[in-house]
């Protein structure tokens, strides 16, 4: 297993476990899963809080820096929010009202 695979597998597992605990609690579901090993403790008590503390932009840059299909050529996403239909004029403007 390459380093990036190892990182992806573990980060996904422990970030999900952390999210499951929070969302479970919010929905009245008891989530068991105390750390059983040293590895569990590292990922849950060091990696997950560190990841959550990172600013969004830095987090996205780090994810983007990992090798993978996302770094190859792909069509760009639609503009968000989407522009109004070209036939639509609201209040004399070519732009839909946004709240």
């Amino acid at each position: 297993m390459s380093f990036t695979q190892w990182l992806r597998t573990n980060s996904q597992q422990y970030l999900l476990a952390d999210a499951q605990q929070r969302i479970g609690r919010k929905n009245g579901v008891t989530v068991y899963g105390k750390p059983r090993t040293l590895k569990d403790r590292f990922w849950r008590y060091i990696f997950v809080p560190t990841y959550k503390m990172l600013p969004n932009g830095l987090r996205e840059s780090l994810i983007h820096a990992m090798p993978g299909s996302h770094r190859r050529a792909w069509p760009k996403a639609s503009p968000r929010p989407r522009p109004p239909h070209p036939f639509v004029k609201i209040n004399g403007q070519g732009q839909a009202p946004r709240k």
């Binding site: 990036t4 990992m66 090798p67 299909s69 190859r72 050529a73 069509p75």
Partner: peptide, 29 residues
């Protein structure tokens, strides 16, 4: 890639010339 899947672009081309990949052996953004 990090998932263990084959890295492809939108044309499903891999890193090797004239080799494409598709389905569960790949990873897609």
């Amino acid at each position: 890639g990090g998932t263990g899947g084959i890295v492809v672009d939108a044309r499903m081309q891999t890193s090797a010339p004239d080799v494409y990949a598709a389905g569960d052996c790949t990873e897609i953004p």
